[in-house]
Design a protein around this nucleic acid. Structure first.
Length: 299
DNA sequence: CTATTCACCTGGGTGC
DNA sequence: TGCACCCAGGTGAATA
């Protein structure tokens, strides 16, 4: 599943191939891929033709191509989206929703997405209200997304303060893209394991320094995953050349149900949380004590 | 206002 | 072999 490190691998791959090139023709296959582009798919395809790519940028899990004319092609990979750089003569792939052809007759850019949770939109570029180092600004539709842990302007103390002001548990907050962006289920579980915190611990009951340590683990695990080319369990996540990352070999918690904890040997448990799975060590990450709002009447 | 739940989507896996 | 069902999960609209 593409979380920040996987999207960053894709961004780098795209940047190498498309920055400085000009679209000659964009074909959208079906209308769903452009459902977030309000004027519709025909408008999107028409307005992309002739535009030059100035940069490939990213915040959290949002990826965009900054274009001339102060607009950006925003790409969200959803759960299964891929951006592939391929020869125009290559056969069209199953679930290929968009084909970007350039005026130099070189490689094509293709958007492939099996589950179609991802999508494309053309959005105005505006100054970043959060002060990130984006030369071309950020898409207006990304302004509600928080700074991600790998940005220079990431402020762990500020995020810890925000988290501790909430009544939610730490995992729910890690997954909230308006608090800190780029974290999904995999890196949330990995960071919580490293920090020895159960995800359902109320953030308000964790000390500020402990939250900051948790966020430092988020940064560490994401940097390590990036170095390994990202995490993938199957062919759904691939880089622009169709290759898989291998960080899944380094996971300590996520997907490790029944395997011994690398610290203490206790079998990793799987719990249901927010209609998803959470993986943790029962010994290193004890569940929080259940707190009652009021004493239970006894008879 | 905040917090939580649910719809969206498809292929691979499993149980009968 | 077939078929029903479950599961993965990021996002944002809907709901409490």
């Amino acid at each position: 599943m593409p979380e920040l490190p996987e999207v960053e691998v894709v961004r780098r791959g795209i940047a190498d191939h498309v920055v400085g090139r000009t679209f000659s023709h964009v074909a959208l296959h079906g209308s769903r891929v452009a459902r977030r582009h309000v004027p519709g798919p025909d408008d999107l395809a028409a307005r992309l033709a002739g535009r030059t790519v100035l940069a490939a940028d990213r915040r959290g899990k949002y990826l965009w191509l900054a274009l001339d004319g102060a607009e950006a092609l925003v790409v969200h990979l959803g759960m299964s989206g891929q951006m592939l750089v391929e020869d125009p003569s290559a056969e069209r792939r199953p679930h290929q929703h968009a084909t970007f052809t350039f005026d130099d007759a070189g490689t094509q850019l293709r958007f492939v997405d099996q589950r179609t949770f991802g999508g494309l939109a053309l959005v105005d570029l505006v100054p970043d209200p959060r002060g990130g180092g984006y030369v071309h600004g950020i898409p207006e539709s990304v302004t509600h997304i928080a700074v991600d842990p790998l940005e220079d302007v990431f402020d762990a103390r500020a995020v810890a303060r925000l988290m501790r002001a909430s009544r939610s548990g730490v995992k729910r907050l890690l997954l909230h893209q308006g608090v800190v962006s780029g974290i999904g289920n995999i890196y949330a579980d990995e960071s919580l394991w490293r920090a020895r915190l159960h995800g359902e611990r109320p953030a308000a009951a964790v000390t500020g320094p402990a939250i900051e340590r948790l966020l430092a683990h988020v940064q560490d695990v994401m940097r390590a995953a990036l170095e390994a080319g990202g995490t993938s369990f199957d062919a759904l996540y691939v880089n622009v050349n169709g290759q898989s990352g291998y960080f899944d070999r380094s996971l300590d918690a996520y997907g490790q149900e029944g395997r011994p904890c690398a610290r203490c040997g206790t079998p990793i448990r799987r719990e249901t949380f927010m209609n998803r799975s959470s993986f943790s060590c029962p010994r290193c990450q004890p569940r929080p004590r259940v707190r009652r709002a009021a004493p239970t009447p006894t008879g």
